[in-house]
Design a protein around this nucleic acid. Structure first.
Length: 418
RNA sequence: GUGAGUGUAGCUCAAUGGUAGAGCGCCGGACUGUGGCUCCGGAUGUUGCGGGUUCAAUCCCCGUCACUCACCCCA
C-alpha cells in the first residue's frame, strides 16, 4: 500500500467542514481589517529563507525541504511565509500599488521535523503581514485582530502573551548582559542551553528543563535593557491593548525562534493542543524588508497554525451539504428517464444523487436513506406512463405524485423551506 | 537527530505458546415497485515486515518499518 508520507495528512470529507470554517473566518476577519489576499509560490530560492528567516535558526539549519533542481538552482519548499510575503512586496513594489500594504495568505508550509500532536511536516498557516508603519497603533491593531480571529472561531481558554525583544540598537547589549550574568553557570545548564548561549543567548529563555529554571529566572530581563525608543514603543503597544480591553500577559521569556523579530513579539496560546500550544505567533520585523534588498520599511505580522486552530475548534463540524433529493428508478426501463430527471434538477441548482449499476429498488432506497437525502423521487413504469414522479419525504414517509413538468418547481420550493 | 508507547478485518477492539473473534460498517435476502427497526445469510485478515527460540509463535526474543506522544524547535 502506498501511504501518505510522514507528517502529511489527508483531510477527509468528515473533517473538511472544520477547515472550511477556519478558512472562512480567516478570510472574513482579514478583509474586514483591510488586508488583501496574496498567493505566493510554495517553492522559493533557498537563499530567501537563509537571509530572511535566519542562518542560525533551526528552521533553516535542519528543517528545510531544500534541494538542487534540474537547472542547478538551490530551491526549497517554504518553511514559513513571511520571507515570501516580503519578497513579493519588494519584487512588485507593492508599497506603490496599495494604499495600505496589508497582505494575507493561506497555504501550506513544509518543515522536516518529527511529527507530533499539532505539528506536521506539511502544515497550513494563515499569514498576515503589514508593511510601512512604525506606529504602535498598528501593533495594537494586529494583535487585536489576531485575538478577534481566535474569538470568532469560538475558541476559548486562550492566553495572549506579549513581549518586546528590542531592536538592533539595544539587543546586542542585552545579549552581552545575559552572557555576562551567566558567567560560569553556563556549564551547569542543559546541553541545549549551552548551544543557545553560543548561537542566540535570548533563546535560553525558551528552556523548559526544571534544573535550569533557577538560573534562568535570575537572569536580566529584556525590559531592563530596552533602549528609550523601544521602551516607549512597547509602553504604547500595551496602552493600545488596554484600550481595546484585551487581557494579556507580558512575558520577558517570549523570545521566539526567528532571527528577524524586533520590538513587539506575541503569541496566542491555547489549551487542549498537547504541548504544541501556540495557535498563532508573530511580531514586528523592522529590518527584514531592507535586509532582503527592499526599501527601508518596517513590518509586522503573524502566522496562525490552521491545524492547531482546527484542533481547538469547539463543537461538531458541519458535515457536507445535505442532499436535496435522491432519484430512484423502479425497474430497469426507467433509468433513462430517471437520469434526465436528475440532470434537470441539478441544472436547477439542487443537490441530487442517483444510483448506478441497475441496483434493486430496495438497495437504492437504502442508499438514499444513507445519503441523508431529504426526499426520494420515485420513477417507475406507472409514473412513466402517467408522466408523473412520486415524491417521498424521507422523514415522514409521506408520498405524493407530481406531474413531471412540475417537479423542478415543486422541489425548488420545498428545498427552500428545508 | 533523541526518548517512550503502540502495531490483529474498512473502523473500534478482544483472544490464546497449538495458524483468530466480537461490535459497528459493508453486501444480499425476508418485503418480485419503497429506506430507517427487526430477523436470516455472506465477504474481507499473509495478526506491519524480516529473522530467532520452540514440535508449534499473533503471543516470547532481536532487528526493521509505520504510527502516536514527548524532547529540540515552532504554527
Amino acid at each position: 500500500m502506498i501511504t501518505a508520507i510522514k507528517g502529511t495528512q489527508d483531510i477527509l470529507p468528515a473533517d473538511v467542514g472544520r477547515w472550511q470554517r477556519v478558512e472562512r473566518v480567516a478570510r472574513s476577519v482579514c478583509e474586514r481589517y483591510g488586508y488583501a489576499e496574496i498567493r505566493t509560490p510554495v517553492i522559493e530560492r533557498e537563499e530567501l529563507f537563509a537571509k530572511g528567516t535566519g542562518e542560525t535558526t533551526d528552521i533553516v539549519q535542519k528543517e528545510m525541504y531544500a534541494f538542487t533542481d534540474k537547472g542547478g538552482e538551490r530551491v526549497t519548499l517554504r518553511p514559513e511565509a513571511t520571507p515570501s510575503m516580503v519578497r513579493a512586496f519588494v519584487q512588485h513594489a507593492l508599497e506603490q500599488e496599495l494604499p495600505f500594504a496589508k497582505l494575507y495568505s493561506l497555504g501550506p508550509m513544509f518543515r522536516y521535523e518529527r511529527p507530533q500532536k499539532g505539528r506536521y511536516r506539511q502544515f497550513h498557516q494563515l499569514d498576515v503581514e503589514a508593511f510601512g508603519v512604525t506606529d504602535p497603533a498598528l501593533d495594537g491593531e494586529v494583535i487585536e485582530m489576531a485575538a478577534t480571529f481566535v474569538a470568532e472561531l469560538g475558541i476559548e481558554a486562550v492566553e495572549l502573551v506579549i513581549n518586546s525583544v528590542g531592536c538592533a540598537e539595544c539587543r546586542p547589549g542585552f545579549s552581552a548582559a545575559l552572557l555576562e550574568a551567566l558567567g560560569e553557570q553556563v556549564d551547569s545548564l542543559c546541553g541545549d542551553c549551552r548551544r543557545r548561549a553560543k548561537t542566540n543567548p535570548l533563546r535560553i529563555f525558551d528552556c523548559k528543563v526544571p534544573a535550569d529554571q533557577p538560573i534562568i529566572e535570575a537572569l536580566p530581563r529584556t525590559e531592563d535593557y530596552l533602549c528609550e525608543p523601544c521602551r516607549t514603543h512597547f509602553d504604547a503597544v500595551k496602552q493600545h491593548l488596554d484600550a481595546y480591553g484585551l487581557l494579556y500577559r507580558v512575558s520577558h521569556r517570549l523570545v521566539r525562534g526567528l532571527d528577524y523579530y524586533t520590538r513587539t513579539t506575541f503569541e496566542v496560546l491555547g489549551s487542549a493542543l498537547g504541548t504544541q500550544n501556540a495557535m498563532l505567533g508573530g511580531g514586528r520585523y523592522d529590518q527584514l524588508v531592507k535586509q532582503l534588498g527592499g526599501p527601508d520599511r518596517p513590518g509586522i505580522g503573524f502566522a496562525a497554525g490552521l491545524e492547531r486552530l482546527a484542533l481547538a475548534l469547539p463543537g461538531e463540524a458541519a458535515g457536507t451539504a445535505p442532499v436535496d433529493a435522491f432519484v430512484v428508478a423502479f425497474g430497469n426501463a426507467s433509468w433513462p428517464a430517471a437520469r434526465l430527471l436528475a440532470r434537470d434538477l441539478r441544472h436547477a441548482g439542487l443537490r441530487v444523487l442517483i444510483d448506478y449499476e441497475d441496483r434493486s429498488s430496495k438497495s437504492q432506497m437504502k442508499r438514499a436513506n444513507r445519503s441523508g437525502a431529504r426526499r426520494v423521487l420515485l420513477l417507475g413504469e406507472d409514473e412513466l406512463a402517467n408522466n408523473q414522479v412520486t415524491v417521498k419525504e424521507m422523514e415522514t414517509g409521506q408520498q405524493q405524485t407530481v406531474a413531471r413538468d412540475q417537479v423542478t418547481a415543486t422541489l425548488l420550493q420545498v428545498a427552500r423551506t428545508d
